[in-house]
Amino acid sequence: MITLAGICREFMVGDERVAALRDVDLTIATGEYIAVMGPSGSGKSTLLNIIGLLDRPDAGTYLLDGEDITGLGDRQQAALRRHKIGFVFQFFHLVPRMTAAENIELPMILAGIDPSERKQRVAATIDAFGIGNRARHRPDQLSGGQRQRVAIARAVIMQPHTLLADEPTGNLDRVSGGEVVEILEDLNSRGLTLITVTHDPDLGKRAGRRIRMVDGRIESDR
């Protein structure tokens, strides 16, 4: 359950103040499938970053599971990102020196989970995502679709309740993009809240709820 009320975010571009979000109110129930759409610079990514606790709003309140988290410190916000939120990026952001399995394991290492349990969960996740034969490969030996699957596996290994995907298919061809969308929708069907930011109208149509943003405001929400 995510509740945003009166969220504002401004950036300084040179000497000029640019409002990325203007007074955004939004409520997202657990298990929803949302596509955030809109032209470039409309504030979609900023909204996603604020929901994902990577960015802080200048004004407004953000309730995550009924708890006001705008005032939390760095350490507590990091803990929430670790346990409740998973990220999927357009450019995958896999650590290049680590194998696929190690990339998937990374959030659990940061969370201080016992090595034997880590190994078990990584093995199970690799099987579930169908990348078993690629587990020992480094990202540069994987195709784009495989990389994004590894990135999704990493995002959900800590069993978060919300998955944030910023242009998850933006860097993929049609076939692997379709596979990635299927994986994301499958996760959503198992109860995970899925919020995607996308330019792709086809992908947008598949979502249960479409939010269109223009100029830092929510223009339509259906």
Binding site: L54, A78, A79, R81, A111
Partner: peptide, 11 residues
């Protein structure tokens, strides 16, 4: 990335 997957600044 480390921050996004839950590492605080201190870590």
């Amino acid at each position: 990335l480390l921050k996004a997957i839950g590492a605080p600044g201190n870590r």
